[in-house]
């Protein structure tokens, strides 16, 4: 009966994952391998194709009071603003998913804020791997594909932003998790009882313990030939914390050095006093 409960929990998380996140790993891999039957994504590999892509793809841009001023900003900054806008959407999606985790909304409200503040970027980079391969990343809900080389060719420090995420993604994708595994994995990340400043740790640890059991069973059932997968996946959580620390340091540097660039208020409150 205990195992049955854990399977029900995993199924529930899988269902809410589908409701919360529009681009699943299954869909992204189908696009990346040309198995959708739809037209292939528009490839952005240099500044010219980026400009062309801006007309071809419906890039979502943050609402800015002065569009003219935005147009005058250099390509790196405009590209970064699009990334930020996508990150804000992702935070909204992850928050909705977190609220569907059984027991999450009953936690102390301050602790819910803390868990999201520390967890969202780790979840974002876990899920970013789903839309990446060693050569590039899907953008704009899979309408475009931006090459890794192009991102590496941007001026400093923008060129340093994505490379660690590609390195992580290649290793993470080698574990061959699917969406049902990721749904439980990101729940484990969110329910981390060691985040700084938590008021009431015990109920979070209890929820995470149960979630870890659900993850272990999920991986045993879904990957019977990979007995070490659970242990390997837990090690990835350490890598994720390192990536987030470096990412936040880079954002803080950009905030100081790129005076033309605005950091979205939601991202500002997340990264402020984070690490």
């Amino acid at each position: 009966p205990e195992s049955a409960d854990l399977r029900v929990l995993a199924k529930h998380l899988y269902d809410s994952y589908f409701k919360s996140f529009p681009l699943t790993k299954a869909k992204a891999r189908a696009i990346l391998t040309g198995k959708t039957g739809d037209k292939a994504p528009f490839v952005i590999h240099d500044m010219n194709s980026l400009k062309a892509g801006e007309h071809y793809i419906s890039f979502k841009q943050p609402p800015v009071p002065d569009q003219g001023q935005q147009q005058n900003k250099d390509m790196e900054i405009r590209l970064f603003q699009s990334c930020q806008f996508r990150s804000v959407e992702a935070v909204r999606e992850i928050t909705e998913f977190a609220k569907s985790i059984p027991g999450f909304v009953n936690l102390d409200l301050n602790d819910q804020v803390t868990l999201l503040k520390y967890g969202v970027h780790e979840v974002i980079f876990s899920m970013l791997a789903s839309v990446m391969n060693k050569d590039g990343t899907l953008v704009s809900c899979g309408q475009g594909f931006m090459t890794r080389e192009f991102l590496k060719s941007l001026r400093k420090p923008f060129c340093e932003l994505m490379e660690p995420k590609f390195d992580f993604s290649v290793k993470f994708n080698a574990l061959e998790l699917d969406d049902s595994d990721l749904a439980v994995f990101i729940s484990v990340i969110i329910l981390s009882g060691d985040r700084p400043g938590l008021v009431n740790v015990k109920p979070i640890e209890d929820l995470q313990d149960n979630m870890l059991q659900a993850l272990e069973l999920q991986l045993k059932m879904n990957h019977p030939d990979s007995p070490q997968l659970f242990a390997k996946l837990l090690q990835k959580m350490t890598d994720l914390r390192q990536i987030v620390t470096e990412h936040v340091q880079l954002l803080q540097l950009l905030k100081k050095t790129e005076l033309d660039m605005d950091i979205h208020p939601l991202l500002q409150e997340i990264i402020k006093d984070l690490y």
Partner: peptide, 20 residues
């Protein structure tokens, strides 16, 4: 904490937040 994380707090309390 609530004061320093007004938008996160709003997202937790309300799913729409269409002005973001």
């Amino acid at each position: 904490l609530k004061e320093k994380h007004k938008i996160l707090h709003r997202l937790l309390q309300n799913s729409s937040c269409s002005d973001l």
